[in-house]
Amino acid sequence: MSWALEILKASLYAVIVFTFAAVFAAMLGVYLERKISGWIQARVGPKHVGPQGILQTVADTIKLLQKENIVPRNADFLVFSTAPLIVTVAALLGYVVIPWGKLGDWILIVRDLNIGVLYFAAVSSLIVIGILTGGWSSNNKYALLGGLRSASQLISYELPLGFAIISVAMMAGSLSTVDIVNAQRDVWFVFKQPLAFLIFLIAAAAETNRIPFDLPEAESELVAGYFAEYTGMRFALFQLGEYAEMLAMAAMTTVLFLGGWRGPWLPPILWFFIKTYAVVFFFMWVRWTYPRLRIDQLLNLSWKVLLPLGLLNILGTGLVVTLAR
């Protein structure tokens, strides 16, 4: 009986989190992206649907719902249809361990796993499987190239991401997201671990395939990269997965380095959203400011700069913590 109740509760949470991701990450994210890009490029952005164009993405979603799902004749049907599902579900799974705030003593988190951040890194790396299979199964040369690039890029940047997470875990002495936020009661980890923060931000931008690391998509050379053959709702699922992952990464940056929900005066939930969307804004700002890297520059940055730096940071942190004991 209690198991049935737990499953029911979990399903309810899943529906809430999925709706939240669809509305706040994808719809609001795309709207913000278009508005901010318009602002940065001195134009207006969406303006006509709803006040200040706020309903533009709703209209786009309704449009995409009416589009035909085309599967190219040469594609592998089964793999082609599964790939967008993998990307969406992998992005959604990361939301299980994000603590959104605190109401009294009640922490707004789906489940406080004791290996929270490791779990987050693990499920967010599942996205590469969806992208690679999507690119391969399209049987399109551009898509395959995009998928392969994505595979080498995502796995290369996973290592610095892991090193940054480990430096934080060493300071907090725990992998649970709630414990990490509680460990920042006095000083945010961004001040104790500035190098890890920088590595994490760069790796997070690369993990979410955003410019300057958007080689898997690269509109100007690969059409749209791995999702070149996807139409309608399947394309929308890829977009949803990508924006949900970006919001999750921004939320994780907040948890690991910016003190989570902690802050004076305002309610904790509000603080969490302010910090998270500040990081999202930073990602968008970078996207509309810098050009795309070449693949050799991209891999050099990860393997020859971030990876040794991350390792040295771990050793340095270990030395300081051991000596200070």
Partner: peptide, 24 residues
């Protein structure tokens, strides 16, 4: 129970992602 939640999230996530595809 923690991992039950993760499993349910996976299953419900797939169902919710298939839902718009069914509408289409």
């Amino acid at each position: 129970v923690d991992w039950l939640y993760v499993a349910v999230f996976g299953v419900v996530g797939v169902l919710l992602a298939v839902l718009p595809l069914a509408i289409v």
